[in-house]
Write a protein that binds this DNA or RNA. Structure first.
Lengths: 336, 336
DNA sequence: CTGTTAGCGCGTTCAG
DNA sequence: CTGAACGCGCTAACAG
């Protein structure tokens, strides 16, 4: 159905090798280039990447495996990475693990079967056995957001403990001592790290560990954040300030706070999504992940592997999240 | 690097043909099957989909091209489709057009170069020239959410006009006559359709077209919805009820309403995202798109094309969106 | 600068 | 039931 070199040969009379060179930057007579281009236009020819990849052992495409497609953090990073990769000549294939380690395994093998040149993964858990197969084929991997056990791979993460600690500091500076955290299960790397950073910072600032009932492990959903905030506010001694451990919690907690408006108004630090922060008034403080920088570093690492230095020891880039201080509100006015 | 049939031949002594048959359901002696499986385990062999696709002219993968990756509606549909496609033996490649017709064009050609067997597309605009190339290669296409000009392709859309009309009816039944719509540019198919359905329903119910200042074309973002709602509420004669034209508007408008709580409380119908609806109290009414059904129909249409009936005339499935009525609140109590 | 030759890894005849 | 031979569309040496 689709035209091939043979069709171009039929039209131009040139050999397959010349035609191939034309498409791969070899030396071809200007006159012949033109004839080929004419044939291309006439036939609607496009190179077959499958055949090219099979032959050249380079598909010029990278696989991106996301733990959850439906997460702004992920899609934002993907957009940023895709743009950079396109500039470098790489196409990208996005796969969704839907939170399932099994689907993740399938996705990785699917991508290896497609002969991707490299893999970027936001892993579901800390253990990703399929990556051993990638390594066996010499396919480099960069983990994003969470490191991967086995440590054979590059990674880009943020300093989650420091990020949450900065939020705690902001609140403590305003006089808060009863600070709560909306967090997820400890089995998630980021949730665990943020919880640990939180506990450490609270202890440092208040001289006491956080109260257990102020550190809620919740389902990582909007509803989880909503319920979490409501439960906190209904405690016998509710916290005067709340740190949200991620975007979903921030959104859910915001809605809960609005509903409770008037009754209680804890100070509040959101996470992740500056667009959302811009829209809430008074604008709350936010921990903002350096999404562009994460994408840039991930691309940098994978491209470096692809262009040779396969033997460099695996590297984990740890980036700093920013704390964007909001407009005047409870936490800046202090407890007054 | 990766093992091939040749490696298996070396280990088992069997011929390439026999090995191929083993992997493709041919008749192979049980004893030989076992020997092959042992070799597979030993070598960590996996079929090379690239080579297989080149040879068999079927890659068993479909391309999914999204106008925007970062949109819950899209990612939800993708998840639902992926699951069904996997059951049918198809892998999927997701590409993001990032709202750019140019990127969309690139994505389609990227996918055609990967020899995808079919294409599902949520198009950026109504015109997608690259689809002609798909047609020329006999690659079937299903458009989702918005139809595509040229009409050579199957499509799955919802009845946008009826959906918005139902929302207007609900509000009108509660006595509202000053109803507003948060909408996007008319160049978006869904935004235009919803606006038209809105205008028609308002005229039918109130005997007058909607006031121009009550039909706001906004940037399709959370912030757009936020600003839109605020602008509406600051009008000299603000509407008593507001219909949101999509998810982003719903979220932004919700936040604006919360901020304005006490001052004004228009009745309110959200769009698209039931998870969000569950979290807002009192729970607002929502137009809910039948996401699973959309995914199911899209998969059905593309699979039908793939299994032969290439000559069936293009079909556009029009599905009904549901109006989920919320808890008691302004619109049910009427204007009282 | 161009053409010939030989595969990449696999699926599919067709003899045996 | 098995194996030899050929080719999918393209790239990569080589000669010329």
């Amino acid at each position: 159905m689709a035209a091939t070199y043979k069709d171009i040969r039929r039209v131009t009379g040139l050999s397959l090798a010349t035609i191939s060179k034309h498409f791969n930057g070899g030396n071809v007579l200007a006159a012949n280039r033109e004839r080929i281009e004419e044939a291309v236009a006439e036939l609607g020819y496009r190179v077959n990447d499958v055949a090219r990849g099979l032959r050249s052992r380079r598909s010029m495409t990278l696989g991106i495996v996301l733990d959850e497609l439906n997460r702004t953090f992920n899609t934002t990073i993907v957009s940023a990475m895709e743009e950079r990769l396109r500039d470098a000549g790489y196409g990208t294939i996005i796969c969704d693990s839907r939170g399932s380690a099994e689907a993740e395994d399938e996705a990785i093998h699917f991508l290896l079967g497609k002969m991707v040149d490299g893999l970027v993964i936001v892993p579901v858990g800390s253990d990703v056995p399929a990556l051993a197969d990638a390594a066996a084929r010499g396919v480099p991997v960069v983990a994003v957001d969470r490191p991967v056990a086995g440590a054979g791979t590059d990674a880009v993460v943020i300093d989650n403990r420091a990020a949450v600690a900065a939020a705690v500091d902001l609140l403590a500076d305003a006089g808060h001592t009863a600070i709560a955290l909306l967090t997820g299960p400890d089995s998630w790397y980021t949730m665990r790290e943020r919880r640990l950073g939180f506990a450490e910072a609270v202890a440092r600032r208040t001289g006491r560990p956080p109260r257990p009932e102020h550190v809620l492990p919740l389902p990582v959903t909007i509803e989880g954040g909503f319920d979490g905030m409501r439960r906190l506010m209904r405690l016998a001694s509710p916290p005067t300030a709340v740190v949200c451990g991620n975007y979903e919690f921030t959104l859910g907690a915001t809605i809960a706070l609005n509903e409770l408006a008037g009754e209680v108004t804890p100070a509040f630090v959101g996470f992740d999504h500056l667009d959302l922060a811009r829209v809430i008034r008074p604008r709350p403080s936010f921990v903002v992940q350096p999404v562009d920088e994460i994408a840039a570093r991930a691309v940098e690492l994978i491209l470096a592997r692809l262009s040779g230095d396969a033997e460099r020891p695996p590297e984990t880039a740890v980036l700093r999240a920013d704390l964007v201080v909001g407009e005047a509100s409870t936490y800046e006015r202090g407890l007054s």
